[in-house]
């Protein structure tokens, strides 16, 4: 029996359209498509004006985050077997739309930039490398795997309402990743930069972020750890 799927896709080209609209496509799957991204690429052959980002097609680059049947995820990891006959695809919520499924990630990256996502260590490096014990190395597990796909931050109401002040789950994971790194020397400065009422304290523990992360990471827990560090520093 032929596997025919209906796709309802958010379309918006600010140069041509007065307002966004939903366009319906149908596609008969021939069995070679495994993930939603494969289907989208076929649809783009039907209609080359359809725009979306993608690169690695295997959950590594983080470029094809989108809202799939109401839940943020990566198109390249969304198995067609697990999706229903009708698939509704929208851009990641809360960010300005550049075109169709392509959003402007400036605010997202600005929060990322704010946490100084790089090792700060002013001691002259040893001739080989800066060593870390296996236990210290383990502390950044569940953090360093983040691919910055923005699925979490764009599902977070606190980030929707204060995208300029609240780090959001993704940048928080990065902030904690460098706070716990035994090789980093800027812990105190990093904490001082997060002490305002918004950066991490705006998280209300709704856990939408945990629910959508395609890498199975837990930003809420990382935010909790940062708060504990701030509290033990402040008390």
């Amino acid at each position: 029996m032929a596997d025919v799927r209906t796709f309802e896709i958010y379309r918006y080209d600010p140069d041509k359209d007065a307002a966004p609209y939903m366009q319906t496509y149908t596609l008969e799957l021939d069995g070679s498509e495994r993930m939603l991204l494969d289907a989208l690429i076929k649809l783009k052959k039907q209609d080359e004006t359809l725009s979306f980002r993608r690169s690695c097609r295997e959950g590594i680059c983080g470029s094809d985050g989108m809202n799939i049947n109401g839940k943020n995820g990566l198109a390249c990891l969304a198995s067609l077997d697990e999706l229903p006959k009708k698939i509704v695809v929208r851009p990641l919520p809360g960010l300005p739309v550049i075109r169709d499924l392509v959003v402007d990630m400036t605010m997202f990256y600005r929060q990322y930039e704010k946490v100084k996502p790089f090792l700060i260590n002013n001691t002259p490096p040893p001739p080989t490398e800066r060593r870390q014990s296996p236990e210290d190395r383990e502390k950044i597990d569940g953090l360093y795997e983040c691919i910055l796909c923005a699925c979490c931050s764009t599902s977070c109401p606190s980030f929707w309402w204060n995208p300029d002040k609240f780090l959001g789950p993704a940048a928080s994971i990065q902030a904690y990743r460098f706070l716990v790194d035994s090789r980093d020397e800027a812990t105190a400065e990093r904490l001082a930069n997060l002490d305002d009422p918004f950066s991490v304290f705006r998280c209300h523990g709704i856990m939408n972020c945990v629910n959508v992360c395609p890498k199975g990471l837990n930003p809420t827990r990382a935010i909790g750890h940062i708060r504990n560090m701030l509290l033990s520093k402040g008390v």
Binding site: L194, D195, D196, P197, F198, S199, V200, F201, R227, L230, L231, K233, G234, V235
Partner: peptide
């Protein structure tokens, strides 16, 4: 004076 204080 800070988010930490408000939280406490």
């Amino acid at each position: 004076r800070s988010g930490t204080h408000d939280w406490i």
